[in-house]
């Protein structure tokens, strides 16, 4: 083989590799989106129990309970239905009550969720806490006056 052809083959293989990688990546994305459930759908028994799924929602107020060691439980809610989640491990910095989370794990026979991973979501606000507090109060006032 001429060196020119050799190089061409090599790069053709590289491009084919990139295409395969893209397909795999799209596949990962698809399975990620299709196995994402809200607590409402979990309670309605729409989520499979035999595989890893994700549940996304908000951590319910006053629902975080520290058990022994790193073990803990909390409730993920979408304000319609609740799912109790067990987790043991390190929590992300943003994990808090009334904040969005995505948990990854398996549904148990009793309807609770055993999480392997807990991810936190942050909002689109880039403001200091005092300002956020003031904005929240202003919003509440406005809501009351209406």
């Amino acid at each position: 083989m001429k060196p020119r052809h050799k190089r061409f083959t090599l790069i053709a293989v590289a491009i084919a590799g990139l295409i395969v990688a893209s397909v795999l990546v799209m596949n990962a994305l698809r399975s990620n989106t299709s196995y994402f459930f809200s607590p409402t759908r979990v309670v309605a028994n729409e989520a499979p129990r035999d595989r890893t799924i994700r549940i996304g929602g908000v951590v319910k107020k006053d629902s975080i309970k520290r058990l022994k060691g790193l073990d803990m439980e909390f409730i993920v809610t979408d304000n319609v239905a609740d799912v109790k989640v067990f987790y043991s491990g390190i929590l992300p910095d943003l994990f808090a009550e009334e904040k969005s989370v995505v948990t990854k794990g398996r549904l148990q026979a009793d309807g609770t969720f055993k999480a392997e991973q807990v991810l936190a979501k942050h909002d689109e606000k880039y403001i200091p806490p005092e300002v956020a507090e003031a904005m929240k109060k202003a919003k509440e006032l406005k809501a009351k006056s209406q």
Partner: peptide, 18 residues
């Protein structure tokens, strides 16, 4: 630091990788 994961198959991250 914020979410608690280096990588996730989030739509935006996935499309950026592509």
């Amino acid at each position: 630091t914020s979410w608690g994961t280096w990588w996730d198959w989030d739509p935006r991250m996935t499309s950026e990788l592509i």
